[in-house]
Design a binder for these strands. Structure first.
Lengths: 180, 180
DNA sequence: GTCTATATTAAGATAGAC
DNA sequence: GTCTATCTTAATATAGAC
């Protein structure tokens, strides 16, 4: 069993319980591995597990979001494809964003730099695509930021209000909104 | 010393360290009270401290955000006044939102209901103001949600990217955007 | 590569003196 | 109303057998 086997399980635990709440006991139970076995796969303990998950998410973005932004077609099409993938990974708004989770509270100092790199890559890529369509660079950057803001905000509010329809509406309207 | 004395200190600790990270030891040090003294003021421990802070924030909203929305003037003016207060309470984007913090991770189950009530009150109030100006109710509701989404998303991104200019831009543009 | 058993630390919480 | 001292539990982490 490679350590990659446990990444989806770790991601779910972190999303559900947060960094502090995802204890080694819970991880042990969910993975079916004893604590000592977890340290065999992740010698640096929980922080290494989280870093591994973040690397996985960075890869996922590279292989899903960025290709969606580079497909042939209009900006509208590109944004629709990206939103489809975001809708998948956030399970229609049911699943919170690990980036936001790790940025709040005690885990922030540990993982902030890694999260920042991922978020920046996403926003930079959107900015580039929008610029390439002839938009002024500053305007493109602002629109890219607005997309990330809307996604993150919609996830927070959907969880806070127990109403995924907020996230779903944002996902549906975003492509048009970026083009408008 | 009433327990209200310690609310600003508790709020800061919770915003900085999160629910799990704001330990009784840190609270004891920051307030200058021993652990046993903290239990004198908050017999139910940390959860009662957090609930007290949430009640304070609900009051703060009642006395700051809602009045701003009810001042004389156009929707633009109302929104500008509300944004001024939000800019204050979030320290220009430097300070994270306790609601978002508590909604993520292990504290979610404990405080979700209380947070939901506060967020709903805010959104409902904005919806009412927008409706009163002649807007269709569903449209008004959507715009109100969009405001909350933009604020929450901008706070997340500003912290994630170490760049409060995102929050400040959103705060600046929101009033116009709601009216557009 | 997985386990049992355990070490170490720190968390939340309480008793009882002053 | 605040304190010192202590209790209980659970967290991360490790040693060493298999």
């Amino acid at each position: 069993m490679s350590r990659n086997t446990y990444i989806p399980c770790l991601l779910n635990l972190l999303c559900q319980y947060g960094y502090d709440g995802a204890t080694l006991s819970k991880i042990s139970e969910a993975t079916g591995l004893g604590k000592a076995s977890l340290y065999h796969h992740f010698p640096n303990g929980k922080d290494e597990m989280v870093t591994t998950v973040l690397n996985f998410l960075a890869d996922w973005m590279e292989q899903n979001i960025l290709p969606a932004l580079k497909t042939e077609g209009s900006i509208l099409i590109k944004m629709e494809r990206m939103c489809d993938r975001l809708n998948e990974v956030y399970a229609g708004g049911e699943k919170p964003c690990l980036f936001a989770i790790l940025l709040m509270g005690s885990s922030r100092d540990i993982f902030h730099d890694q999260v920042k790199v991922i978020l920046l890559k996403w926003i930079n890529e959107m900015t580039e695509v929008l610029s390439a369509s002839g938009l002024d660079t500053a305007i493109a950057r602002g629109k890219a930021e607005d997309v990330a803001i809307a996604i993150q905000g919609a996830l927070i509010l959907s969880h806070g209000l127990d109403d995924v329809s907020l996230f779903q509406r944002i996902i549906r309207q975003l492509p048009q909104r970026v083009c408008g």
